[in-house]
Design a protein around this nucleic acid. Structure first.
Length: 552
RNA sequence: UGAGCUAUGGUGUAACGGUAGCACUGCAGAUUUUGAUUCUGCCUGUUAAGGUUCGAAUCCUUAUAGCUCAACCA
């Protein structure tokens, strides 16, 4: 029995269009403005647009909406392409709104000729003042009824650079009393004597978003132009231009942008975090940017899964970041190489171990039969985690305590015989005995233990720096709290373990490797600071039933 | 206080006039050489009030709540 996969509302629209024969295949686009870095919100838009065209047999263009020369830079174009590529999205064409400047200019001329556009001399303030309000109609500009010839000449003069910034604009001639404020003679072109990252100084007039986006969609024959809900009021204008221009009718559909708990998503706020040094940069592993999450060790597969699970709709939402963490754990659990790393060492001396150091074997990944094994040096002196020993353990403590026994993962069962302390009473060393016949995989000892600990040889290991990240904010929705969102920054979002002791296999860690440090979480090499030393970022922790139990 | 959009467990999303389902979270248990993974089970929901209908989460009305809109930004 075939399982009916339910469709989201956009898929329903597309299937209906396809069924009705409106299109044979679909074209979507991902249209970032190259003025900043991509974040998770963009990632969901990418998954949506590229996912749709893949599902329904079509393609997706990557189009840079570069109509504002003063905010846009090539640097951003490059980082955006890198991020999109990393997510696994393959665009059909790399396009730029600026590629269409000449065509857009001709569109504007067409509208002028049809009497649908005019050059206005009003200042920005005057235009705002005559715009009216939600309850009051606007009033016509005194230049609204210039002749077509005059408009044509003036617009050509604008292009030719005869005017200074702000001196003139081209407006659509619609209705200054329109219910929709966006339809009250919106601006189509403004003068900007500025260098453009691609067209250089060729142009000094630039189209506004509303006169560039829909037309670009149309030029590319985009069938389904998907954007976020705040553009709903723009749809009327979008359709108006296409109708008056009589060009390919692209259609705009809107969905609700995704919000995540314990973070902020607006460019303005992210920028503040970077500029005021609350984080290390746009790619700080705590940032919700794609570059930040990549650096932290998230995988494209996890994002894809996340997008699929979250779905798509039109209502406001605040998605539990726990879902993203679940997705990344689920993927990493399958692919991560298991390794042992001790963050806070407590020396263990095995008093009855008097032979040569030996090498034991440990599987790389119990989830992967073909994952292979690696060697683990074992010896008389080892490190275990400080927190894995308690002199006076509470109930249900499965780890080491005086007289207690645990298994060392991949190795032997040991018993704690003696606790060595320094003058201040701090435990500095445990003296233990091991049971030779309890060797992992060959255990004939018959001893049952509750706990299994990770460990590292004290004489054969490699040191590394480990960075542990917590949530960047203390509250679920920093933006909706009283006062400044920055008041809710979690001051302890980064813990650095400068010297952790790792098993030797980690010496050969590669940048795209994913690791699970046993009982510690998932880690990956930091792509910036790993140079002459190893620096690992914790992507996400393991589920921690014991930690939860303790909090009770 | 004009217009538009939206309202389903704690969270996200299905059900398209006919049994409110799935996932995450949470809780309980089993297995476990990671207190991980895996497996079982459980808790929790249609914003409200009317109306139409044999039957309403779904259609209608009203109310309520949230979001969006008056940049020469996108």
């Amino acid at each position: 029995m075939a399982e009916e996969k339910s469709l989201n509302f956009i898929e329903e629209i597309i299937e209906e269009d396809l069924r009705a024969g409106k299109y044979k295949s679909i074209v979507t686009r991902f249209p970032p403005e190259p003025n900043g870095y991509l974040h998770i919100g963009h990632a969901t838009a990418i998954c949506l647009n590229f996912g749709l065209s893949k599902k329904y047999g079509g393609y997706t263009n990557l189009r840079f909406d570069d109509t504002n020369p003063v905010t846009e830079e090539t640097e951003y174009v490059d980082s955006i392409k890198e991020d999109v590529k990393w997510l696994g999205a393959e665009w059909k064409n790399e396009l730029y709104a600026s590629d269409y400047f000449e065509q857009l200019y001709q569109f504007a001329v067409t509208l002028i000729k049809k009497g649908y556009a005019y050059v206005d001399d009003l200042t920005a303030e005057e235009i705002a003042a005559t715009k009216g309000s939600h309850t009051e109609p606007g009033s016509d500009s005194p230049h609204r009824n210039r002749s077509v010839e005059e408009n044509l000449q003036l617009f050509a003069d604008m292009r030719a650079g005869r005017y200074a910034d702000g001196e003139k604009v081209l407006r659509a001639r619609i209705d200054m009393a329109h219910q929709n404020l966006l339809m009250r003679d919106p601006l189509m072109y403004r003068i900007r004597h500025a260098h453009h990252h691609r067209t250089g100084d060729t142009w000094c007039i630039y189209p506004m978003y509303d006169f560039a986006h829909g037309q670009s969609d149309s030029i590319e024959h985009v069938t389904h132009s998907i954007c976020t809900l705040e553009f709903v009021p723009h749809r009327e204008l979008y359709d108006w231009f296409i109708e008056k221009l009589e060009i390919f009718p692209s259609h705009q559909y809107e969905f609700a942008r995704r919000n995540l708990t314990y973070t902020v998503m607006s460019k303005r706020k992210l920028k503040q975090l970077v500029e005021e040094k609350h984080v290390d940069g746009w790619d700080d592993p705590r940032m919700p940017t794609i570059s930040g999450m990549r650096r932290r060790g998230y995988t494209p597969e996890a994002f894809q899964d996340f997008c699929d699970r979250v779905g798509i709709a039109k209502r406001e939402n605040l998605i539990d970041v726990g879902l993203l963490e679940f997705c990344v754990r689920e993927h990493l659990n399958k692919i991560a190489l298991r390794r042992m790393v001790v963050f806070d060492p407590l020396k263990v001396v095995i008093t009855n171990y008097d032979r040569e150091n030996e090498f034991l074997e440990g599987e790389n990944n119990p989830e992967d039969e073909d994952g292979g094994m690696r060697e683990l040096p074992f010896g008389r002196e080892l490190y275990i985690e400080q927190e894995d020993f308690m002199e006076n353990p509470p109930k249900k403590f499965f780890r080491l305590f005086p007289g207690g026994m645990v298994r060392l993962k991949f190795a032997y069962i040991i018993r704690c015989d003696e606790v060595v302390k320094d003058d201040s009473g701090k435990v500095t060393e445990l003296r233990c005995t091991y049971f030779p016949e309890s060797r992992s995989g060959h255990d004939t000892s018959g001893i049952q233990v509750k706990g299994t600990l990770h460990w590292v040889s004290a004489t054969n290991n490699v040191t590394a720096e480990v960075r542990l990240y917590e949530r960047l904010f203390k509250v679920e929705d920093p933006s909706s709290e009283e006062g400044d969102f920055k008041d809710y920054i979690n001051p302890d979002s980064l813990h650095t373990v400068t010297t952790a002791y790792a098993e030797p296999a980690l010496r050969n860690a590669r940048m795209d490797d994913r690791f699970q440090f046993l009982r510690k979480g998932y880690f990956t090499l930091d792509n910036k600071d790993t140079y002459h030393r190893l620096v690992f970022n914790r992507t996400v922790g393991l589920k921690d039933a014991w930690g939860k139990e303790q909090k009770k």
